[in-house]
């Protein structure tokens, strides 16, 4: 153990007027960390699936996101093409996360510059999936993984996210349950409620 670490921990214990916690006390703290109980969750999330979906859309729109509701996955390419045309982004390079490339048919994008490599640093538009949408605040959760790198969420001026309606959950706590259901903690978990809003 480093000197600074020893010194710092000793100072804390002295200030708290106690020594090292007993083994039983440490076990109890570890146990409560490993099995945390949910805290206070807003009551407005006690609604049915339709209500949660409506809430997600309303709260996301309130934060200046735009949303297109589609009835099936096959409609995704056309909706993206339309958005790109409407927003004068048709000629830009698109960066598409590989996890999405395997579930959406991008054949219709033959005229567009699409990059599936996910290792570029300069691109205007990114198209990715998300682990889930959180109704509480209209927030999306993304995690870093080989087929969905972190930077793809931050480098583009426009970020298009394709989200299945089944992936909408009520609260952050429900989103953490999805993370815990995975094999291990992802390197980054991002809650995004873009667009960015700089505070000077």
């Amino acid at each position: 153990m480093s000197d600074a670490k020893n010194q710092l921990l000793a100072r804390i214990r002295a200030a708290l007027h106690r020594g090292l916690l007993s083994t039983a006390e440490q076990s109890a703290l570890t146990e409560s960390m490993l099995h945390p109980t949910r805290g206070i969750i807003p009551a407005y999330l006690n609604t049915d699936k339709k209500g949660l979906m409506r809430l997600f859309i309303e709260t996301a729109r309130r934060s200046a996101s735009t949303i297109a509701e589609l009835s099936s996955r096959s409609e995704v390419p056309n909706a993206i093409l339309q958005f790109l045309k409407e927003n004068d982004l048709y000629t830009r390079t698109l960066q598409v996360s590989q996890d999405l490339a395997s579930i959406i048919n991008f054949e219709k994008f033959a005229d567009l510059k699409i990059d599936f490599e996910n290792n570029k640093r300069e691109f205007s538009v990114s198209i990715t999936s998300a682990v889930c949408g959180i109704s509480e605040t209209g927030t999306l959760m993304m995690v870093s993984e080989p087929k969905h790198p972190t930077l793809i969420n931050f480098l583009a001026e426009t970020h298009i996210i394709v989200l299945a309606t089944q992936a909408i959950v009520p609260s952050y706590e429900d989103a953490w349950d999805l993370i815990r259901a995975g094999s291990k903690m992802p390197r980054t978990v991002i809650l995004s409620r873009a667009p960015l809003a700089p505070l000077i």
Partner: peptide, 14 residues
């Protein structure tokens, strides 16, 4: 704001 534009949880290096 109900939540900021980004909240990022980072665990370890690449």
């Amino acid at each position: 704001q109900a939540i900021t534009s980004y909240v990022t949880f980072t665990t370890g290096p690449k």
